[in-house]
């Protein structure tokens, strides 16, 4: 599928989706264990509590949330692994929980901790099995396989038994196996978990290229904000099973952290700049970082330039990790002196 053939219909449509798990509970200890034989107590846990959103064809969306927020449960419902308790889900026009073959042939779910490759044989043989599973014509299979092997730079690895590969090498081979059938929707759950920086970067680059070449929609969860920043123009923040924010990354920063950091370098050395904003950091070489409200950042910078001989000045948004931390903490930015 190329970009020109993208439909106006959303690739993913979710309305008021809910998933409740019934979990057994008991206190710790032998006595509680024996009591549990006779009388068992359960609790309903609402993992997803009325989530609604759309993902357009070709869109890359980051799904953010703390551990246990409901991200993975959402991905499992979208890929047909879990039956929703209520609500509507449509992926490429299919209801995932029906697990129709045509639907499964058009999606993939990559989980950082899942292993779909056969352990004892080279990845190339597992790729061959996927060819049969997805009924990929030979020529198309060879073309896609060679392209993926080249893009992920795993030419030397796919001939070794999978058990002999490192985590990062195996993850790259897993991703290649997951994309052999050229899925139109990719659900990626922590695809770079446990990988070194180089491997993370390569996988990010690869996913961006795959999205560009095929026009596939990607829904991604990751605790590495670098993944999200590199790939996603839009994020959906989920907390306690509900959507807390749905929009652009930049707007997320503005909304949840309405301040910026001005870093100014003064040749005269250490100077008291507390009158301009909250001093976050000050070094003996005259470099000072100030936290100021976003709306006042330009004016404060202008005042600094007017009042001092400035050798360097930058205005930056706070790190996205800090923004997300504030989002999960559910509190607005601390008051900033101006």
């Amino acid at each position: 599928m190329d970009a020109a053939s993208r439909s106006d219909q959303p690739a993913i449509r979710v309305r008021d989706l809910r998933k409740t798990f019934r979990v057994a509970e008991r206190d710790a200890g032998l006595a509680a264990s024996i009591r549990g034989l006779v009388r068992r107590t359960h609790r309903d846990v609402e993992a997803v509590a009325g989530v609604s959103f759309d993902v357009a064809s070709g869109e890359v969306v980051g799904f953010l949330g703390a551990n246990g927020a409901g991200k993975t449960t959402m991905l499992k419902m979208l890929s047909g692994l879990l039956f929703p308790t209520s609500g509507e889900v449509s992926v490429l026009g299919h209801t995932p929980s029906r697990r129709e073959r045509e639907f499964l042939r058009r999606i993939t779910l990559v989980m950082g901790n899942r292993n779909q490759l056969q352990w004892d044989i080279p990845a190339l043989d597992s790729f061959e099995m996927n060819r049969a599973v997805y009924r990929i014509p030979d020529a198309e299979f060879r073309r896609t396989r060679d392209e993926l092997v080249e893009l992920l730079e795993i030419g030397d690895l796919v001939r070794k038994p999978v058990r002999n590969l490192s985590l990062g090498e195996r993850m790259k081979a897993e991703i290649a196996a997951s994309l052999l059938h050229r899925p139109q929707v990719l659900f990626l759950d922590e695809p770079t978990i446990g990988l070194d920086v180089t491997a993370q970067k390569r996988i990010r680059g690869f996913l961006a290229e795959y999205n560009r070449r095929t026009g596939a929609s990607i829904l991604l969860t990751s605790h590495y904000m670098a993944d999200v920043q590199a790939l996603c123009s839009r994020v959906v923040v989920i907390d306690a099973g509900a959507v807390l924010y749905d929009g652009g990354l930049r707007a997320l920063t503005t909304r949840f952290s309405p301040h910026q950091t001005i870093t100014v370098q003064l040749p005269e050395g250490v100077t008291d700049l507390s009158g301009y904003g909250e001093v976050v950091e000050s070094s003996p070489d005259g470099r000072t970082s100030l936290r100021v409200p976003t709306a006042e950042a330009s004016a404060v910078a202008a005042r600094l330039l007017a009042d001092h001989r400035v050798s360097g000045l930058t205005i930056e948004d706070p790190p996205i990790e800090d923004v997300i931390e504030r989002v999960f903490a559910g509190r607005p930015s601390a008051p900033v002196p101006s």
Binding site: Q118, I121, D125, M129, R131, A132, I136, P137
Partner: peptide
């Protein structure tokens, strides 16, 4: 490739290899 024979052949071959 339609139908299951192709799938069975590949999985059986994989089992032998493993």
């Amino acid at each position: 490739l339609r139908g299951l024979p192709g799938f069975y052949a590949v999985v059986m071959r994989t089992a032998v290899q493993s």
